[in-house]
Amino acid sequence: MNAFTNQPLAASAIPAVTNPLLEVADLRKTFSVGRGLFGRPRAILKAVSGVSLKVYPGEIVGLVGESGSGKTTLGRCVLRLVEPSAGTVRFDGVDLMALTGHQLRAFRKHMQIIFQDPFDSINERMSIGELVGEALAIHRLAKGKARRDRIVELLEQVGLRAEFADRYPHTLSGGQRQRVGIARALAGGPQFLVADEPVSALDLSVQAQILNLLLDIRDRLNVGMLFISHDLSVVRFIADRVLVMYLGKIVESAPAEVLYRSAAHPYTQALLSAAPIVGEGRSRERIRLQGELPSPVDPPSGCVFRTRCPKATSECAAVEPPMRAIGPDHHAACLYPASA
């Protein structure tokens, strides 16, 4: 076996003419950290600093970044699970920011989230059937016999036999739990899913099953997906397009194969060179990043990556680089991008 012998992936799922399902413009999220004696915040933490992105129906957009990049906050903000500080989120033409709490709750069936640990906040005493039924009840969908049928249908959709409905969470393996988490997310018949590190806690052999399942669901239900992960090889496999996030900003965006073949942003290049890859072993030269991730309370002026960037000049401290086109559908926020 050779690394990366896979054929060019099936034609990208991005339709050329359809409208985006999700359109995020200049989204910002700040948190107040540390309160002084009179309740005034001591500092402002910039978790997401002006992010714009689109997800088309049936498209899987990968969002990669390290801890502290703001990827999880961004994922919650686009669903308004965390209230954005500024910016717009349009979902299928609807301005999410304009919805009242009540309207938003009703709208949630169209957009759901899959967590790393799906059972983090559930009642362990409910059976699997009850847990999936609860998700249906929240959206006031299907009652009585119809609900029971729908529960079985949802379980089967995620590869669990009907008898799982009578089992309890503690009897399930990690992979089975994640399947239940996905069944709950699918209960309202969503068009869009945020998957936040959905396979990070799973064993490799089980991770592959869940990745296949997510692809099946995308193909069958044509849902759009924002797939958040720190694992570059997982994102390369599952995503049609990839966004790279660093310190609250998107620094590069490209179709998956393009990004991995010809990354233009120095941060993306460093990230790719750091990831251990079977089949390349110790032969590769790494790009070593200097220093540590700066504090999001006090991000660097100009380019957020400049303090660790091997290419940085004085200009990088003065100017915030805009996203510029590198190639077709390929953008990078860098004054000195590598040419494709």
Partner: peptide, 23 residues
């Protein structure tokens, strides 16, 4: 062999050859 085939980078086509079941 199954572990190797489960690696996303060795995907052949659009699905991974996952090991069925669990430990």
């Amino acid at each position: 062999q199954g572990l190797m085939r489960s690696l996303p980078q060795f995907a052949e086509g659009r699905r991974l050859a996952a090991i069925p079941g669990f430990v």
